[in-house]
Simulated assay, not measured.
Amino acid sequence: MITADFSILPVGIDNTECKEFVAKAVQAIKDSGLNYQLTGMGTHIEAENYAQLYDAIAKAQEAVFTAGTDRVYTVIKVDDRRDRENRTLNAKIKTVDDMLE
Rank of each mutant, 00 (worst) to 15 (best):
V22D: 05
G33N: 00
K77D: 01
A63M: 08
V72M: 04
A51K: 15
E17I: 14
G42A: 00
K92H: 01
D14E: 05
Y73C: 09
D83L: 03
V26W: 03
T95N: 07
K59F: 12
M41C: 09
T3S: 02
R71Y: 05
Q52I: 05
V26F: 10
K24F: 13
V26S: 12
A91Q: 02
N49H: 03
E46I: 05
V64D: 07
K19C: 13
V64R: 11
Q27G: 15
D97K: 15
Q61Y: 10
T39C: 15
T39Q: 09
D31E: 05
R87C: 13
K19M: 14
T95F: 05
D31L: 12
A51N: 15
I93V: 15
E20H: 03
R82C: 03
K77V: 04
F21K: 01
T69R: 13
S32I: 14
N35R: 07
E62G: 11
N90I: 11
D31P: 00
V75K: 03
I29P: 04
E20P: 10
I29V: 14
T88V: 09
G40L: 01
A25H: 05
A23T: 12
K59S: 08
F65L: 11
M1W: 07
P10V: 05
A60M: 10
I45A: 03
A67H: 00
A25Y: 14
L34W: 04
D98H: 00
D79L: 00
N90V: 14
S7A: 15
K30T: 13
V75Q: 03
D70W: 01
Q27D: 13
K24Q: 08
T69P: 09
R87M: 08
I13R: 06
C18N: 15
R84F: 13
V96N: 09
D97P: 11
I29R: 03
I8A: 11
I8C: 11
T88G: 01
V72Y: 06
D5E: 02
R81L: 15
V11D: 01
K94Y: 10
T43I: 14
G12C: 10
D98Q: 00
I76C: 00
T66Q: 04
V11S: 14
A91H: 07
F21T: 11
F21C: 03
S32Y: 07
L9W: 01
D31W: 12
D80H: 02
F21D: 08
T95I: 10
A58D: 10
Q27N: 15
A63D: 06
A28L: 10
A4N: 06
A23P: 08
M1L: 02
K77W: 06
A23C: 12
H44K: 03
E85R: 14
I45N: 07
K24R: 07
E20S: 11
I45K: 02
I93K: 12
P10K: 09
Y73V: 10
Y54N: 01
D31C: 09
T43W: 12
D5Q: 10
G33V: 04
H44E: 12
Y54K: 06
L53M: 14
E17P: 08
D98M: 04
E17A: 13
